[in-house]
């Protein structure tokens, strides 16, 4: 089997790469650098010795301690966002060989198994770059406010247990609730475009992750108290009707959030809501 470097490498190909990984080799990390908003970007390459089980974050750490490019130029450590290093916080998302994914769970052996292989790191393109690989994802959280992604509880005083729930409903909600706000689904979505101007966030396409959160809370016994507010927001410009159904989002979600199901469900709820609104005049 040929070695798959391309972003569309399958899990099987990546596993195959792993088995042919050469010990004691180096990897060439090609990194897209940018000193700040409005500054021109540039490429820098670093030769990094590969340890067994090494991931992209470990490469970036190595570069931080040895910030010298392959051409022998001294440079600055690469700026990037990271947190848990366990693929559960969503922070370290970037484009690796052109595809958005978490860098902490990206093993070098799977992408660059042979001596001198290249791995390319770039910032996501749908969010403004702050510096190097670090982008500003504030809009992603703002969209959670747009759909009121919370349960409107009466307060934090002791008022007994929450509503009962079947294991099936729990499992459905859990699957949606694992969304770690990483932004992969937005990076892949043709309808979601970069929007540096905060003023237009309220009317730009909200994205699959937030539509799915609306479904999550509409499906909770207390959360559904705000169902109409959520659906009204998703009927507005930037709402669910702007989704073109390309289904890219669900293919790239690292947590397997059922995004297309959520989009379909919310689409139906919105239709019903617009009928009731039309007939009741509210």
């Amino acid at each position: 089997m040929a070695i798959a470097y391309a972003h569309e490498s399958t899990a099987d190909q990546r596993r195959a790469n792993r088995t042919r990984a050469v010990e004691g080799r180096t990897v060439l990390c090609r990194v897209r650098r940018c000193d700040g908003p409005g500054k021109a970007g540039r490429w820098e390459s670093f030769k990094v010795p590969v340890e067994p089980g090494m991931n992209v974050i470990a490469c970036l750490k190595h570069i931080a301690q040895n910030p010298v490019t392959v051409d022998g130029n001294t440079t600055t450590p690469v700026v990037y966002d990271a947190g848990c290093l366990e693929e559960v916080c969503g922070a370290c998302t970037m484009l690796i060989n052109g595809m958005a994914r978490q860098s902490c769970s990206c093993l070098i052996d799977e992408y660059a198994p042979l001596e001198g292989d290249t791995i390319t790191l770039e910032p996501m393109t749908k969010f403004p770059v702050i510096r190097d690989l670090w982008v500003d994802r504030a809009r992603l959280f703002q969209s959670l406010t747009r759909v009121k992604a919370w349960v409107p509880i009466d307060g934090t005083y002791a008022l007994g247990a929450g509503p009962k729930e079947s294991p099936e409903v729990q499992q459905d909600r859990y699957d949606m609730s694992e969304c770690m706000s990483c932004g992969c689904c937005l990076e892949a979505c043709p309808q979601f475009t970069i929007e540096p101007d905060e003023a237009s966030w309220d009317t730009s396409f909200i994205g699959a992750h937030a539509i799915s959160q609306a479904r999550l809370f509409n499906g909770h016994a207390t959360g559904k108290e705000l169902k109409n507010d959520r659906l009204d927001e998703l009927m507005n410009p930037g709402g669910v009707s702007e989704c073109g159904n390309a289904q890219n989002c669900v293919k790239v979600c690292p947590k397997g959030v059922p995004l297309t199901e959520s989009i379909a469900t919310i689409g139906r709820q919105v239709t019903i809501r617009s009928f009731t609104r039309f007939f009741s005049g509210k």
């Binding site: 349960v151 509880i153 729930e165 909600r173």
Partner: peptide, 11 residues
């Protein structure tokens, strides 16, 4: 109980 009311999907 409070976390339950907030919607935590406890098993």
């Amino acid at each position: 109980d409070l976390l339950d009311r907030m919607g935590v999907p406890f098993n």
